[in-house]
C-alpha cells in the first residue's frame, strides 16, 4: 500500500473486488473504520454488504484489492510488492481476532449456550475448563442470559440465540466485531433485545461493523454509515449527512423505502 494507515484506524479496505461466477458482487469498494467506531453498512439486498463483511473476516477471498485490519492484511503477507497467501494456521490466528455474528446465528445445536460460548476459548485459546466456564458465564451475564446457560439452542428464542452468538464471538476477545444482519431473522418483538446488547457493546468502545436494515439503530449508534448499491459504496459519512442529504438517486430511493417502513 502506498500510504501507511495511521494508528487510529482499525479497518481499511482498498479497491475490494469480488465476483461469483459471472456476477460481480463487489466493484472496487473502499472503506475506512476508526478504532472504537461503530460503522453501519446499509443498502438494498444484493448490493454486496454481506460479501464485503465476509471478505473482512476471510470467509471469502477478494479477487482484487486489499483489506487491512489492525496492522496486517487479511489473508496475505506483503513481501517485495507481492501479496503472498498466508498459510491456514496464520490466517486462522487473524480470523480469531475478528468476531462474527451471523444472520442465522449458526449456534452449535448439539452444545448448550454455555458450551457454545466456551468452545472457542477451550479449543482455540487452550483455556482450562474452569477458566473458560467462568469467563463464558460472565459473557452470558453480559448479554443477559446467565439463566439460560444450560439451555440448548433449540430451547431458546431467536433473540436469545443471537445474544448467545454475540457472547460466543466476544469470548474470543476480538479486536473487531462484525455483524451480518443480526436482526433480520428475528420476529419484530425480539429485535430490541439484540440491538440493546449491541448498543451496550458500542458504548464500551468495541470497534463494530454492522450490516443492517435498522435505520433507527444506525442513526442512534453509528459513528459512520455507508450505503452500498450494486457493489459500490455510494454514500459514506456521518449518519446525519448520509440519511438527510443523500446525493445518489439509488440511495435516495432505498432510504425513502426503508425509512417509510421504519417510522
Amino acid at each position: 500500500m502506498n500510504q501507511i494507515p495511521n494508528a487510529s484506524i482499525a479497518v481499511k479496505a482498498v479497491n475490494v473486488t469480488k465476483s461469483f461466477g459471472q456476477t460481480q458482487v463487489l466493484r472496487g469498494v473502499d472503506l475506512e473504520v476508526r478504532k472504537g467506531e461503530v460503522f453501519c453498512l446499509l443498502g438494498p439486498s444484493g448490493g454486496g454488504k454481506s460479501t464485503l463483511l465476509r471478505c473482512i473476516n476471510h470467509l471469502e477471498t477478494p479477487d482484487d484489492g486489499v483489506i487491512w485490519v489492525d496492522g496486517a492484511i487479511v489473508g496475505y503477507e506483503l513481501r517485495g510488492g507481492v501479496l503472498h497467501e498466508l498459510p491456514p494456521r496464520v490466517a486462522r490466528a487473524q480470523q480469531r481476532k475478528i468476531g462474527m455474528v451471523f444472520q442465522h446465528f449458526n449456534l452449535f445445536p448439539h452444545k448448550t449456550a454455555l458450551e457454545n460460548v466456551m468452545e472457542g476459548p477451550l479449543v482455540v485459546l487452550k483455556q482450562g475448563k474452569d477458566e473458560a466456564q467462568t469467563k463464558a458465564l460472565a459473557r452470558l451475564e453480559q448479554v443477559g442470559l446467565a439463566e439460560q446457560a444450560h439451555h440448548y439452542p433449540s430451547q431458546l428464542s431467536g433473540g436469545q440465540k443471537q445474544r448467545v452468538a454475540i457472547a460466543r464471538a466476544l469470548a474470543m476477545e476480538p479486536e473487531l466485531m462484525l455483524f451480518d444482519e443480526p436482526t433480520s431473522a428475528l420476529d419484530p418483538e425480539l429485535v430490541g433485545e439484540v440491538l440493546s446488547v449491541m448498543k451496550d457493546l458500542a458504548a464500551s468502545g468495541t470497534t463494530m461493523i454492522v450490516v443492517t436494515h435498522e435505520v433507527g439503530f444506525a442513526r442512534a449508534v453509528a459513528d459512520c454509515v455507508g450505503i452500498m448499491v450494486e457493489g459500490t459504496m455510494r454514500e459514506f459519512g456521518d449518519p446525519e449527512t448520509v440519511f438527510s442529504n443523500p446525493s445518489d438517486p439509488r440511495v435516495q430511493a432505498f432510504l425513502a423505502a426503508v425509512i417509510e417502513q421504519d417510522f
Binding site: 473476516n57 470467509l59 490466528a93 464471538a169 474470543m172
Partner: peptide
C-alpha cells in the same frame, strides 16, 4: 455450511471443526 463458518470465525482448524462441530451433528 454456517456451522463450519462459525467455527472458522472462532479460529478453529478444519480438523477441530470436523471433530467437534460437524461430526457430532
Amino acid at each position: 455450511k454456517g456451522q463450519s463458518e462459525a467455527a472458522a470465525t472462532l479460529g478453529m482448524s478444519p480438523a477441530q471443526t470436523f471433530r467437534r462441530i460437524v461430526l457430532p451433528q
